[in-house]
Design a protein around this nucleic acid. Sequence first.
DNA 1: TATTGTTATACTCTATAACTATA
DNA 2: TATAGTTATAGAGTATAACAATA
Lengths: 177, 177
Amino acid sequence: MTKPVFDRGPGLAPEQMSTYFALTEAVGLLQHHVEQQLRTDGDLSTVQFQILASLAAAGGRLTMTELADGVVYSRSGLTYQAGLLEKAGLITRGPSPDDERSILVTITDAGLARVRQVLPGHVEVAERLLFDPLSESDVARLGEIMTRVRDHMRAQPPRSAAPRKRRSAASEAAKGD
Amino acid sequence: MTKPVFDRGPGLAPEQMSTYFALTEAVGLLQHHVEQQLRTDGDLSTVQFQILASLAAAGGRLTMTELADGVVYSRSGLTYQAGLLEKAGLITRGPSPDDERSILVTITDAGLARVRQVLPGHVEVAERLLFDPLSESDVARLGEIMTRVRDHMRAQPPRSAAPRKRRSAASEAAKGD
DNA sequence: TATTGTTATACTCTATAACTATA
DNA sequence: TATAGTTATAGAGTATAACAATA
């Protein structure tokens, strides 16, 4: 009943190991339940909800790049999702007055209504699955810890930077193809 | 600059709200980095790694249903992933001596080697992104909290039960189609 | 009749590269 | 030349339902 694969790691202490597995497993389960709830209550995927929620939290409008950095990991993926949301009447896309290249994404009243529609169930799931076994002090500490972790991760190079390959004419020619 | 959508929820206090968002966002970022690391270091998806890790942690063998309950959310999805892993020589599938219906999934030496191969990088990512900004006491508390949450979630009805619709001949006939 | 697992199928989602347009 | 966004396309992954075999 030993676990030879995990007991000797180059870096992680056993305490970190079990913390890591508990965290990923718990969040995985939570995500799955949330996914079903959002689909059932408002016909939204998690990504779509995150886009709408980001817009709502930002006061109604963001550019595509701002959205991509916060929510999705490729620009084309966001374009796809934005297309679906626009077709559903939950957002609109229009030119930005500041920068002609940018697109301003705006949440519609229907979009806000949809968010409000799914929020109770969403909250209920979080309440039941996540917060139910936690004390107030647990919640406070967990929030403090995860905020610190999130800020730390956000300080790492952003996601939208990587896929954008900088290619000079020189390097392009050098590679031959 | 108000956030009318989120400020009045039926259930969640603001503290819970921010905890929830910090948790999901941080774990989302973590998952994305882990995904890239596993793909780069060992040509594995997260699900595939979880399957192999589950087998390794369980001592080498599990049935398909046990795996599905722990890792993936549909039986067919697991069959698909197991097919890939078997084709890659990382697991084998064979009959169970106890129950002729069951399939025993066994991790191969190559499978164990693959887990060991990706583990250092995996650990490095967790170290750098998750544990770096945390103190020992943070890790201990986080682990304690998330273990409690996970156990609580596991106590809820399992995933493999739901998709399996029980349909009696009667209810089938009654619905007409 | 219930459970284990597979298959066929259709669908969603994502990422890559090539492209247009503006800074 | 670099950045914002879209498009075409191809691939991975998932779930549903129907199926066969065993308990």
